[in-house]
């Protein structure tokens, strides 16, 4: 199939960007979306042009590095799918596909479709951990964890930190990301001693980074490749309110 792509091109953080039109020919339906971009880039390099910069690494939907807004939807319209796992069979000949970077003030564009997501790392730095030096741990069976709690923790822990939640949120909020980590660690007995302080410092850091406020629109969970539930946001709010009291 042949496609028309409209891609956000921006050479550096300070320069203005614009949507640029490209044509790609003979796209195989079995290609992944990123492989389709690889083909475009090979052509651009040979023509002496700047290839489209985009982040990617594992290409199997787990590292969280890739992410672009495709036709107005973070990671494209396939549910529970990262951009690297989106395949071209979901497009048809003659389609016009727009591709944009995540848009959020705390995620400034570095180049083209590459954004700086270090704000997420700083939110984790603020408290997204259990303080336990290597070698200080008791036997793993010392504290049994009810299966329900372990499952809740796991569901939240599947977050890959891709940032699609922020990209899709009309408010540019990072509540799903932050809530997921607070829920993951707070659900486990090992994470409980720091539960209150963790919620407080992480939420404060999230606000400091300039993310928007949550209005529970549900847009985040709808595009989340791992289907993280809005419950984690309620959990974050509960822990935060408790800590603020």
């Amino acid at each position: 199939m042949n496609l028309t792509l409209k891609i956000w091109r921006q050479h550096s953080p300070d320069e203005p960007g614009q949507m640029v039109k490209y044509h790609v020919k003979d796209v195989s339906p079995d290609m992944s979306f990123l492989e389709m971009l690889d083909v475009l880039n090979e052509g651009l390099i040979l023509a002496g042009d700047d290839p489209v910069a985009f982040d990617h690494d594992c290409r199997e939907g787990i590292c969280g590095m890739c992410g672009m807004v495709i036709n107005g939807v973070a990671h494209g319209e396939q549910k529970a799918t990262t951009t690297c796992q989106l395949h071209m069979r979901h497009f048809k000949d003659g389609d016009v596909v727009t591709i944009e970077p995540w848009r959020a003030a705390p995620f400034p564009v570095i180049k083209d479709l590459v954004v700086d997501r270090s704000a997420f790392d700083r939110i984790i730095q603020a408290g997204g951990f259990v303080s336990v030096p290597a070698g200080a741990a008791p036997d793993a069976h010392a504290v049994p964890v009810p299966k329900g709690d372990a499952d809740d923790a796991f569901d939240a822990a599947t977050c890959i930190g891709c940032g699609a939640c922020v990209a899709a949120c009309p408010n540019g909020s990072a509540s799903l990301f932050t809530g997921a980590k607070i829920t993951h660690l707070g659900s486990l007995p090992q994470g409980r001693p720091e539960r209150a302080s963790r919620a407080k410092t992480m939420v404060e850091q999230m606000d400091l980074e300039g993310f928007g406020g949550c209005t529970n629109t549900g847009e985040c969970t709808a595009v989340c490749p791992k289907g993280i539930s809005l419950d984690v946001i309620a959990r974050m709010n509960a822990d935060f309110l408790k800590a603020s009291r």
Partner: peptide, 11 residues
């Protein structure tokens, strides 16, 4: 939090 808007209407 979103000073630059999406070119395509966010769906």
């Amino acid at each position: 939090a979103r000073p630059v808007r999406y070119a395509t209407r966010r769906r």
